[in-house]
Every structure is written in structure tokens, then in C-alpha cells.
Design a protein around this nucleic acid. Structure first.
Lengths: 187, 187
DNA sequence: TAGACCAAACGAACCAGTTCGTTTGACTTT
DNA sequence: AAAGTCAAACGAACTGGTTCGTTTGGTCTA
């Protein structure tokens, strides 16, 4: 049951991602999405039932891409935080979309699979069995804190926390990884 | 200088805070703000020049309250993270407002003073001199990470991260404080 | 009387979503 | 190959409702 023209639908989805990530659900404008996608509103509503449905489609797309992008290996748990940090700079729209959705109360179902949160918790458990992560941590709580460390500057309310200077950035990254190392360190 | 009736202006400000914290700048409705404040729109626009100005006034109010609410003492740096965690549950509107403002690109100037970020960085430096915090940390980077740890669950995109069960909450809180303890530990 | 206040209404702009008439392209029939 | 058919793609214009910000007319109080 594939859509008649996947190309147009895809262009609308990408345009919607840029719009929603920039302006949020309430601030986004359907006209801008259609026009930036070089499509008509009629086409947009042919493929997506309404604004909220389009938002959810973008949210799902970003959620999957997001969890796929940051991989967790049992033998490199601290580096995982560095990867998250890098990703928050490479693809800021991912975190922005998740944040808009959370504030707007749009339910978001994390993907299932090995790259999903549940899979990452399992990997943390494996790292604990290998003696690479302190076994006293609840892996679920630990995962939340690791994500939070990686996003510390992206989420910081203080303006200018996301620095442009590469030197500052690498010092932030190193701090996050070093903090993660100290946290997981068995003793 | 002073408004003719501070009471009405204050009611509008509090109503605006609830509205903006819930719906954001674009989603907030001026009519709702006025009506919930038991005030007329005419009064609202008598005291605040436009929607954006009202938003900025709310943002400043929240920013001051926010930094005032969480105190940092040199001899209780890890507990500071616990205080942040508690505050994220007690006054979620503070973090929500700061987050809406960041996403919407509304500039936010943190307050100045001893409770402000700059003052807290100084306190961290003092804690380092007292040998309570590892001196290898850049205090500014450390502060961002401590805030981030305290907000780890409030900022988590995973729905249900903010738990209602007091047991789960206290385990989250303990994890955040324990992680902070490990991070700052001199060695 | 002056000014703080309110309810109501207004206007211009805006916005989500629909309708409608036209075009395109693939497939058939002659 | 020309003509006919049909469904989907499409753009432009339209609709009904909403929103911000302003104005008006009036009450109350110092």
C-alpha cells in the first residue's frame, strides 16, 4: 500500500522536520512546510491527516535516527557520553524535536530493538558483568545520567553554553567523558 | 515609576507564568492569561507592551527564583545536585520556562549576585581550595554537569522518566547525588 | 474629576483545513 | 498511432474560525 508518490511525501516530511524542530508544534506553519517542500497544502493533507499527525511522524523519524546514531558498547561506556555530546552538536534538531514534544506533552514511544533504550540498559548490565561498570548502579538510572551528561551543554539554559569555539567544545567533551569515567569506575 | 496597582500587574504576571510554562510562547493565549488573572486585556496591555515582553518578564522572574532556590555551599556540593533534583519536582515550571525560552531563542540573562551562576562557580573554586572537590575540574564545566545531573530525569525525553512513585523518586535522587559525589571526589 | 479598572467588541491578519477545476501519465481501445 | 478513459497529482482560491492588539463605553473609587 505504498503512497503514490513517495518523493513528495518524503520532501514534506523533511521540510516538516526543519519547521517543527525550529518553531515547535504551536509555532510551526503548515504553509511554510508545504512551500519549503515545493508541495501544495492539498498534497500535505493527502499524506498526513493533520498538523499533529505530521508532528508525530517527524517525531518518530527523529526518535529512531537519534537512538540509532548513538551506539553503546559494553567496553566503551564512557565514550558513549562523548558520542552523545558529538551528536548533540551534529544533529541538534534531534534533541530539539524530543524537547518540543516533551514540553508539548506529545507522547513519544522510544523505538524497540538493540539500539533502543531497553537494549542499551542490557548493554550496561553486560558491562557490569564484565567488571567495567560498578555493579552498584541501577543500569536504568545510570543510562539516564549518562544521556544527561552528554547533553549537559545542549540542555543548559545559560545562553552561550553551546560554544562555537572548537577548543571550548573539546574541553566540554573531555569533561563529560571524564565525569562518566568517574561515575562508572568500579571500586 | 511604580504601577498604579501592583496587585493586578502581579496577578497577570503569575497567570502568564502558568500559561507560558504550560504552552510556551507560541502556544500561550493572551485571552487565557487575562481571564485567569481576573483582569482585562486592556489592563494586560497597559502593563506589558506585548506578548513577547510579557514572556520576557516571566522569564526574568523565573530565572531569579530559580537560581535563588538552589543554594550551593562549598561543604555540600553533592547535596546541591539533590537540591536541584528536588526543585525540578517542586517547581517544574521554572525549568519549563527556561527550556521554552531556549528553544524559542529568547535571550535569557542569568541574574548576577552570589546565587547566580557566576557566584556558584566561585563557590566551587572555594570547595576546591578546601580539598572537597578535585582541583582538576574546570569549575564552570563542573557546574554545568552538576545542573545537568540534577535535571537528568526532568529533561529526559523518555516519557515516564519523571516518576510519581516516591520510592522511584528517591532512588533517582540518591543516584544523582551519588554520581555527583564520585565526580567531585579528589583522588 | 482623574484614573484604575472591566466587559465587550472590533479589525486586520493569520491559520488549519477543504474544495474545485486542471493537468499529468499510464493504460486501453480503435 | 490516434483517440478515449480514468485516477491520481496538483495549485489556487476559498472557508470558517482564531489571535493579537486596540478601542469604546461605562463603573467605581480616591
Amino acid at each position: 500500500m505504498k503512497p503514490v508518490n513517495e518523493d513528495v511525501q518524503h520532501r514534506i516530511l523533511l521540510s516538516a522536520r526543519a519547521e517543527f524542530a525550529t518553531f515547535g508544534l504551536a509555532g510551526a506553519r503548515i504553509d511554510r512546510i508545504a512551500s519549503n517542500a515545493h508541495a501544495s497544502k492539498e498534497r500535505l493533507y493527502a499524506y498526513f491527516s493533520d498538523k499533529a499527525a505530521l508532528f508525530r511522524a517527524v517525531l518518530d523519524l527523529n526518535g529512531c535516527e537519534f537512538y540509532d546514531a548513538v551506539a553503546l558498547r559494553a567496553d566503551a561506556v564512557a565514550d558513549f557520553v562523548g558520542d552523545i555530546f558529538d551528536h548533540s552538536l551534529d544533529r541538534p534538531e534531534h534533541l530539539r524535536m524530543l524537547t518540543w514534544a516533551r514540553l508539548d506533552g506529545v507522547p513519544f514511544a522510544p523505538p524497540t530493538g538493540s539500539d533502543a533504550p531497553a537494549g542499551k540498559v542490557e548493554t550496561l548490565r553486560a558491562a557490569q558483568r564484565l567488571g567495567l561498570v560498578d555493579t552498584r548502579w541501577d543500569p536504568e538510572l545510570l543510562l539516564t545520567m549518562l544521556f544527561s551528561l552528554g547533553f549537559a551543554w545542549a540542555n543548559s539554559p545559560v545562553p552561550g553554553a553551546v560554544a562555537n569555539d572548537p577548543d571550548v567544545r573539546s574541553r566540554q567533551r573531555e569533561a563529560a567523558v571524564a565525569a562518566a569515567t568517574r561515575i562508572i569506575q568500579p571500586r
